[in-house]
Amino acid sequence: MSKYLLDKFLFTIDRDPELVERYRADPRGTVEWWEAQRANVILNLPEIERSTWLRFTDEEREALATHDYVRLFELGAHHFLTLTLFIALFERDYDEPLGFQREYARRLSHFSLPYPDIST
């Protein structure tokens, strides 16, 4: 399990306008590119000092590749990172203010306390 890497994906996509659009348009391709090229880059180090050991589990990769925020919640991805990025991806598709956010809540409504652990 690599909750940290899930969070790192959400964090690094969310902060880059071009990557947000790329992930919306081509989720699987973006996840595969990111895992191959970016997953091991330590964010405040030159790229030559990259890590060597970070990779997604199959279920994590699949959840990201299918925009499955319900599964991400279940896997313990940080709820704030997931929400922020997915608002950027999909809020535009809803007419009502907060329409996407309410749909998001409805789709998570089968979860009860305690929620999946977000500790990394």
Binding site: F73, H78, H79, F80, L81, T82, L83, L98, Q101, R102, Y104, A105, R106, L108, S109, H110, F111, Y115
Partner: peptide, 9 residues
């Protein structure tokens, strides 16, 4: 609540 089932109630 943010990113959970009780958000934006």
């Amino acid at each position: 609540e943010l990113g959970g089932p009780r958000q934006f109630g």
